[in-house]
């Protein structure tokens, strides 16, 4: 089979039209989960089939695509989806957040502020924020339509009752434009403030669950909380060991069997850009990728000065 046998960006035109209609409806009703006829994608569920369909429906030949997985451009999921679109759409790809027009993401929002004209596509495993307390889909749909969201606070109440504070650290529920309660996908709650008033268009695709929803540009997104237990977008109390950034979301990397560990930016593009600009952290000779540093501790390859 040749690459020419694919329609542009993989989807056949009927599917693309169906998904675009769903996206338009989702944009028109911010936070509302629009059902769509999710197709089989050439990858397993859980690997971003929803995000891939949304990205495919949005892609134009002149777009520049960036794909990240937990903030990293170079992990399996990101690499394979990026290659998929290189082959089926022939679009340019990038790792630089500022150069991308469409960014497909799994579980992170890039550190660098998004700009008008960019589209951020989220991969969503479970779109229904009420699911774990109310398993009946018929009932949760009714609760959304009637704005009966007391149950969402029951979940937060349970957190405080059990842990002393709201322990939900990811997929933290939000209310969109004062109307729909939405699952922002499993992004860390650290990223929640970036959902609100973003100049970029944010689209959410859940392939297995067959739902698409959206947060249009400059939409108010509020994280749910209690008056006396306000929302707190916390992160690990460290600086990046590579680039020294104090304001970015960090991954903890275990480096040996004797308790050694390091904290590095989860956003690889952000970290590399800073190092290229001369910033350095605790372990930081500039210009090292986090992967290579991690590998070096395992003795797989010694750190070298140049970026592959």
């Amino acid at each position: 089979m040749t690459d020419q046998s694919y329609n542009f960006a993989y989807l056949d035109e009927q599917t693309k039209r169906m998904i675009r209609r769903a996206i338009l409806k989702a944009v028109a009703v911010p936070g509302y989960q629009v059902p769509f006829a999710s197709r089989e994608m050439p990858m397993p569920y859980g690997w971003g089939t929803g995000g891939v369909q949304v990205t495919a429906a949005c892609l134009m030949p002149e777009d520049v695509l960036k794909v990240i997985d937990q903030g990293a451009d170079d992990t399996t999921n990101a690499v394979s989806i990026r290659k998929f679109f290189q082959r089926t759409a022939g679009v340019a790809t990038t790792e630089a957040t500022s150069e991308a027009t469409i960014i497909q993401t799994r579980h992170r929002i890039p550190e660098q502020a998004l700009t008008a004209g960019q589209i951020l596509v989220y991969q969503v495993p479970i779109p229904e924020p009420l699911r774990f307390l109310e398993p009946r889909e018929t009932e949760t749909r009714k609760m959304h339509s009637l704005e009966e969201y007391g149950l969402m606070h029951v979940k937060l109440y349970e957190d405080i009752a059990r842990h002393g504070s709201i322990a939900t650290a990811y997929a933290y529920p939000v209310k969109v434009e004062g109307r729909y309660v939405m699952d922002p996908s499993p992004i860390p709650k650290f990223d929640n403030p970036k959902l609100s008033d973003s100049p970029a268009l944010q689209l959410f695709g859940a392939g297995r669950e067959q739902r698409i929803y959206a947060v249009p540009p400059f939409t108010r997104v509020v994280s749910l909380d209690f008056d006396d237990h306000p929302f707190d977008p916390s992160k690990a109390p460290h600086d990046c060991d590579l680039c020294g950034a104090s304001e970015s979301y960090l991954d903890e990397v275990i480096t040996d069997d004797s308790g050694g560990r390091m904290f590095v930016c989860s956003d690889t593009d952000f970290c590399r850009t800073r190092r290229e600009a001369g910033h350095a952290g605790r372990l930081g000779e500039a210009q090292f990728s986090s992967k290579k540093i991690a590998n070096s501790f395992e003795g797989i390859c010694p750190p070298t000065g140049d970026e592959a």
Binding site: E148, G150, L151, V154, Y157, I160, F226, D227, D228, H229
Partner: peptide, 14 residues
């Protein structure tokens, strides 16, 4: 017990 309170808009944990 708190669910109905939260359902009618109480937002103070205490």
């Amino acid at each position: 017990v708190g669910e109905r309170l939260m359902a009618v808009g109480t937002r103070n944990y205490g």
